[in-house]
Nucleic acid binder design. Sequence first.
DNA 1: CGAACCTTGACACGCCAGTGGTAAGGTTGG
DNA 2: CCAACCTTACCACTGGCGTGTCAAGGTTCG
Lengths: 129, 129
Amino acid sequence: MDALTIHEAAEITDWSPRMLRYIERAGLIEPQRSDAGYRLYGPAELQRLRTLRELVTRFQIGLGDVGFAQRLRRDDELATAIDAWLQAQPQRPEHVPAADWLRWEQDKHSRLLALAGVRAESAAAANLA
Amino acid sequence: MDALTIHEAAEITDWSPRMLRYIERAGLIEPQRSDAGYRLYGPAELQRLRTLRELVTRFQIGLGDVGFAQRLRRDDELATAIDAWLQAQPQRPEHVPAADWLRWEQDKHSRLLALAGVRAESAAAANLA
DNA sequence: CGAACCTTGACACGCCAGTGGTAAGGTTGG
DNA sequence: CCAACCTTACCACTGGCGTGTCAAGGTTCG
């Protein structure tokens, strides 16, 4: 078998066994289990563990952030809601009155939703053309 | 003037003045300032504050999470890296050997990147056709 | 069988988020 | 001018994250 136990996997990925269990609880990497319940890390898991380390150190993010990104990708409703909220962020053009501003934000929202791949090609065409 | 001070804004949005300053430090909502440095919340900010509350309570997320989503949207490199990492997550088809699996993941990655609106129409056409 | 692994669960500790205070000092408006 | 607001800068508490360590018990292998 080419699957490693938790200590072996920890050693070659530069995590601690403790952290491998933690990462699993975070829902990020869930290795197979042996009949006796031992965690078995295959090549794919090892690769993902190394990449994960690279990711968090390079961008200074936390495992919770990666977990949140994962949730974002799986919960479409959440993604849409956050997307909608974030649309209203950019520097508001000073001269545009509030009412028009809101309308502008709303329009832009549709355009970006379309851009994001949410099935709305017609709207995208209409707005981006 | 139709802009509210921090206490007024706090009262009608159901946040505390303390939290409004906190939200500002988190980079989520940064109101204009008066000449003397007083925060001035306009209709747009009030609306965003209410929506933000709705967002965090409804999905049980933290302000940090919203901040991270914002960062995801602004830092393209980060978004791409996380995206790439998350691609490798789904249930691996048991019978596919590791090498082929990696190739499959890579291909899927391109397809999804394209789907996400990253300028790659040709690739998208080639893969999705 | 016994050493060396593995499992889950718990205690602990430092750090950061979320929140409320309070203090020292500037602004505003009657 | 004074009360009532605003500002920033701290102190403090709860709670979760990232980590280590230890305990009690099952598994593996020579």
